[in-house]
Design a protein around this nucleic acid. Structure first.
Length: 433
DNA sequence: TTTTGAGTTGTTCGA
DNA sequence: GTCGAACAACTCAAA
């Protein structure tokens, strides 16, 4: 008689500690087979040196080393998840599949298909809340509808948190892991990818950073932000631990930023069309100019506006851009150049190590003025004033635009005052129709 | 149902 | 240099 197996499926929770579904699988009474699938449909869209694939692979190696020390290992497959599961169904006597819930549109569709496939064999797909404190349907208005405005959402979220005990399983003890000689493993090269020059910074979050978050987070030349994005995206840190750190601080700005993450997640969950359409439909009447040469200059950091160019060059070189500068480059693209926010969103998606669809779409719609709880459209960032306010000594600009005072640095590609008025007129024309 | 207060991150203009 | 108002109404959320 073969032994019953609980399969644990890693997705965006690449850690062994405080992993809800993994713990549940280990407590199921069956032996546990840990699994990761590189989804071919996602890989196909990426460059061969995509740093995110390299980072995921590195995380899997780390997990595999820890499992090997327990005489087990991680099985890594590539392909369409449904094809991989068909193979696994033939090979193992599965009792159940354990995994942590993922609320993005693509993930929901994928999991629904896998659940149907397993269901045909009477095998349940057991999903757990792990990547959020509150799921999209847990924080709702009095009438049962989702919140569309951040502040009341945040207040409701915090009230609910106050009556919730957060449980953290900080140690991984192993337990009923499957014991085998070898596990299917795929190297980065076999996947068709290369190591990237760009790497993810460690998640070494100090309490002083959180205590001084509000004071330092808007200065791009300082290390005032947490750089947690990639770790929250791929689950190399536990959101529960991060929330506890936020709660321990007198400054709750960091905590509120983590609430923004869940705010935009619940928006995308309830309004999946907002990934491609303006949340406020009248904004889809805006006549974007979408000039390809101008878009190219923006992408390359050759606009002639130093803080815009510094931000884009930081992004291109490191896969990261400071939050303050993200707002400015976004505003510049949509408002000064009148280029559709969707093009900016797609460019960020291709470059950001911390790319999170819900946050990226939500914030691009915010900056374009067309989203839930968006900035008013007449709020147009002034690229000069932002330097005076947030990089007065030009420390950040000079780091990324060393030729700032040379003749080789381009003149501003468009006059600020002219662009501002053109933007206001274009928006007005669309909204008054 | 109606009312009321409020709404992430800014800029410009004129006194 | 500094300050307050205007920007443009609108929608949300809760009482």
């Amino acid at each position: 008689m073969t032994q019953k197996v609980s399969l644990f499926w890693f997705r965006r929770d690449l850690r062994l500690e405080d992993n809800k579904a993994l713990n549940a699988a280990l407590n199921s009474g069956n032996i546990v087979l840990p699994l990761f699938i590189f989804d071919q449909e996602i890989l196909n869209k990426l460059e061969v040196n995509d740093a995110r694939v390299a980072f995921i692979h590195q995380c899997l190696e780390s997990i595999n080393r820890k499992l090997t020390a327990l005489r087990s290992g991680l099985s890594v497959y590539t392909g369409r998840p449904s094809d991989v599961f068909k193979k696994l169904l033939a090979e193992f006597d599965l009792e159940a599949v354990y995994t942590n819930a993922d609320y993005e549109p693509y993930a929901l569709k994928r999991d629904s298909e896998i659940s149907d496939l397993l269901g045909k064999h009477n095998i349940p797909l057991r999903t757990f809340k792990d990547q959020v404190i509150f799921e999209p349907n847990e924080v709702l208005k009095g009438d049962g509808q989702p919140y569309l405005v951040y502040t009341p959402y945040m207040k409701s979220w915090r009230a609910k948190l106050a009556e919730t005990a957060i449980k953290i399983d900080s140690e991984f003890k192993g337990g009923n892991l499957i014991q085998r000689e070898t596990f299917p493993w795929i190297s980065l090269r076999e996947l068709g990818f290369e190591k990237s020059a760009i790497t993810v910074q460690n998640a070494d979050l100090s309490s002083s950073l959180i205590d001084n978050y509000q004071a330092n987070r808007n200065t791009p030349s300082k290390s005032g932000t947490s750089r947690l994005g990639p770790h929250l995206r791929f689950g190399t840190v536990s959101i529960r631990k991060m929330i506890m750190l936020g709660l321990e601080s007198k400054d709750d700005t960091f905590l509120k930023e983590l609430v923004w993450r869940e705010f935009f997640m619940q928006i995308l969950f309830h309004f999946p069309h907002s990934s491609t359409q303006c949340f406020k439909p009248q904004y889809d009447r805006i006549e974007w100019r979408n000039n390809p040469e101008e878009f190219q200059k923006w992408c390359e950091g050759q606009t002639g506006y130093p803080l815009v160019d510094a931000g884009m060059r930081e992004l291109n070189a490191t896969g990261f851009m400071h939050n303050r500068v993200r707002m400015l480059v976004g505003s510049f693209l949509c408002k000064h150049l009148l280029i559709d926010w969707r093009l900016g969103e797609a460019y960020f998606a291709s470059k950001l190590l911390d790319y999170e669809m819900s946050s990226n779409v939500g914030n691009w719609q915010w900056v374009a003025g067309c989203g839930v709880d968006a900035a008013p459209y007449f709020r147009i960032f002034n690229p000069h004033t932002q330097i005076d306010k947030f990089d007065p000594k030009h420390l950040y600009i000079k780091k990324w635009v060393p030729e700032l005072n040379e003749l080789t640095y381009p003149l501003p590609m468009v006059d600020h005052k002219f662009a501002r008025e053109r933007c206001l007129n274009t928006y007005k024309a669309a909204l008054n129709r």
